[in-house]
Amino acid sequence: LRLEVKLGQGCFGEVWMGTWNGTTRVAIKTLKPGTMSPEAFLQEAQVMKKLRHEKLVQLYAVVSEEPIYIVTEYMSKGSLLDFLKGETGKYLRLPQLVDMAAQIASGMAYVERMNYVHRDLRAANILVGENLVCKVADFGLARLIEDNEYTARQGAKFPIKWTAPEAALYGRFTIKSDVWSFGILLTELTTKGRVPYPGMVNREVLDQVERGYRMPCPPECPESLHDLMCQCWRKEPEERPTFEYLQAFL
């Protein structure tokens, strides 16, 4: 395994491009020591290896001592969030954005069929390849993070704006909380990567959403798509659509 080009840095580690087995181009995620327990990670990795779908980033291998390494397929255009905010983002029109959403829903419909939960679905965790191919990455890892700023769910590192209220408040993460996050991801797509709930801080978002506030229809977004977002944001988790439905609708 060779680490060649550093692609990015996040709160919990770095991402590199490299070569595996001398020939395969891969992405390598390294986790800061202390982010998660190697034992817990190894268990999760076994499950992650079983998830194989064309719209999920394929896991190739893991190094399960500290520092933990995760070796996955390489996606040339990086994260969907950076892609939307970058040069190419300007030229993306609604049909392409909807197609990308459908690809993500397709990957998540598979996660749904496998009775698995992602827990951290957002544009930053979707990767883009050639020809606007989108794949879901980092599934299941969020559960293992041991950082206090994260586990408190009120901490600075927790993605509260993407998280369903029952998950943020009571830790009830299910495929239905993933559906909520998918609704937020749809706003990221239609606004080219704007942060959700602009002008609001995490605490406010939690309070307002509890009181029934939902983001309005983004500019140039059809009402039918906003309606779909609002279905994803129904207060009762069981009233939210399935990913199978979302995939078919898109």
Score class of each variant (00 low, 15 high):
Ala61Ser: 08
Ile160Thr: 04
Leu92Met: 14
Pro33Lys: 12
Arg122Glu: 03
Thr163His: 02
Ser106Val: 09
Pro165Phe: 11
Tyr170Met: 09
Gln154Asp: 07
Thr151Ile: 14
Ala27Ile: 00
Asn202Asp: 00
Leu31Val: 04
Leu51Ser: 03
Gly18Glu: 01
Gly107Leu: 00
Arg234Lys: 10
Glu220Ile: 08
Thr24Phe: 06
Glu210Gln: 08
Val71Phe: 01
Leu81Phe: 14
Gln103Val: 07
Lys32Ala: 02
Met100Phe: 10
Ala124Glu: 13
Ile175Ala: 15
Val57Glu: 04
Leu189Asn: 03
Thr187Arg: 07
Val57His: 08
Phe249Pro: 06
Trp16Pro: 00
Phe158Ala: 02
Leu189Phe: 11
Gly140Thr: 00
Ile126Phe: 01
Lys77Trp: 12
Glu65Val: 13
Thr23Gly: 12
Asp207Val: 13
Gly13Asn: 02
Val5Trp: 15
Thr88Ile: 11
Asn21Pro: 14
Val98Gln: 07
Glu236Ser: 12
Ala101Met: 09
Met215Gln: 09
Asn202Thr: 05
Arg240Cys: 01
Gly8Ile: 00
Leu1Gly: 04
Thr23Met: 13
Val133Asp: 13
Gly78Lys: 10
Pro241Tyr: 04
Glu14Lys: 15
Ser181Phe: 00
Leu132Glu: 11
Val195Leu: 10
Trp162Met: 00
Gly212Asp: 08
Ala168Val: 05
Lys157Leu: 14
Arg211Ile: 12
Phe182His: 03
Gln58Ser: 14
Met108Lys: 03
Lys135Met: 07
Val5Arg: 15
Val117Lys: 00
Asn115Asp: 05
Thr23Pro: 13
Lys157Gly: 03
Cys134Tyr: 08
Ala109Tyr: 15
Ala123Val: 09
Thr24Gln: 10
Tyr213Met: 09
Val195Arg: 12
Arg211Ser: 09
Ile104Asp: 00
Leu121Lys: 01
Lys29Met: 00
Ala152Met: 07
Leu51Asp: 00
Tyr150Cys: 01
Gln208Ala: 12
Glu149Gln: 10
Lys77Gly: 08
Thr174Leu: 15
Arg143Leu: 04
Met48Phe: 02
Val57Ala: 11
Gly129Ala: 08
Tyr213Glu: 05
Thr30Pro: 00
Ser106Glu: 10
Ala45Val: 04
Trp180Gly: 00
Ala61Arg: 15
Val15Pro: 02
Leu80Asp: 01
Phe139Ala: 01
Pro218Ile: 11
Pro33Gly: 11
Thr19Val: 13
Asn21Thr: 13
Arg234Pro: 06
Gly212Trp: 04
Val15Thr: 02
Glu44His: 03
Ser64Phe: 05
Lys49Asn: 04
Ile175Gln: 15
Ser64His: 13
Gln208Lys: 11
Trp20Asn: 14
Leu169Ala: 09
Gln43Asn: 13
Phe41His: 00
Arg240Asp: 03
Gly107Gln: 03
Asn21Phe: 14
Glu239Ser: 11
Gln231His: 13
Val117Trp: 00
Ala101Gly: 10
Val179Phe: 01
Gly8Val: 00
Gly18Leu: 00
Glu54Asn: 11
Ala137Arg: 00
Arg143Gln: 04
Thr163Asn: 02
Thr190Gln: 05
Leu56Cys: 14
Leu141Lys: 03
Leu141Glu: 02
Arg2Ser: 08
Tyr245Met: 12
Arg119Asp: 00
Asp82Arg: 06
Val57Leu: 10
